[in-house]
Design a protein around this nucleic acid. Sequence first.
DNA 1: TTAGGTGCAAAACCTTTGCCATCCC
DNA 2: GGGATGGCAAAGGTTTTGCACCTAA
Lengths: 132, 132
Amino acid sequence: MEKQPHRNTKQRTALLELLRSTKSHPTAAWLHERLAGEIPGLSLATVYRNLSVLAMQGNLQIIRSRGDAEHFDAIASSHGHIVCEACDRVRDLDLPDGENWDREAAKASGYEVSSHQLIFFGICPACRKGSR
Amino acid sequence: MEKQPHRNTKQRTALLELLRSTKSHPTAAWLHERLAGEIPGLSLATVYRNLSVLAMQGNLQIIRSRGDAEHFDAIASSHGHIVCEACDRVRDLDLPDGENWDREAAKASGYEVSSHQLIFFGICPACRKGSR
DNA sequence: TTAGGTGCAAAACCTTTGCCATCCC
DNA sequence: GGGATGGCAAAGGTTTTGCACCTAA
């Protein structure tokens, strides 16, 4: 699964560390902004390029929800996400099972299945109260 | 769930019909191209606007997979999708259950859950053979 | 030394919007 | 008639790319 040779630049290392240290499923822009203090001159393009590499290495998952930008999640284990359609925030959500799905899907489809993604859409408690 | 007043213009009607008649989970561009013969002068903006309206009405589901563009699926029943990471095509995939998930997710999260989306990623048989 | 990585700026892309003419109800 | 729609073109935002200069290994 890991094919590319790769170097551990401070940019890539910092990116993965930051991603692993947060539970907020950030966007590329957020990561860039957050890292800019630590690594002056950091380019947004670098953030994207590294996110792409990390995704290929299986180190993170890309979440395309509603809203404009992609969200990124350092993978620990297979889990689902729930997105608030009002504030666009992403939260983790564990539902039982999900481990054998890839195998089942492969059997049912004839595909070589590598991963899956389960996303729920709704309104979070905070937004429901604020009725925003 | 349905809130907006709406008119049945030929553009919107044709769009929904086309979407319902195909199993290919098209992109907006594909729909536009396909409809251009039937409705000369049809604007891509109109396609997008109508897809948005139809989605709000619950007539279709938006699939954000890999690849750049969104794919659209006329909803019949709740089902999952499987995306080929090589050719980017989307196929339907029925996995058991899935009916109570929204309720379970709501209970587990405190959100007001309206829908969910399950997407598998892999390589389809055709692309595996072609090794493309 | 050298292939991969980075910054910067420009490009590419998809999607949305403003505006005004048009059409449905 | 009046408000929802459509067409067109321009804007908006995110992500990607080209290129020259670095830098980890």
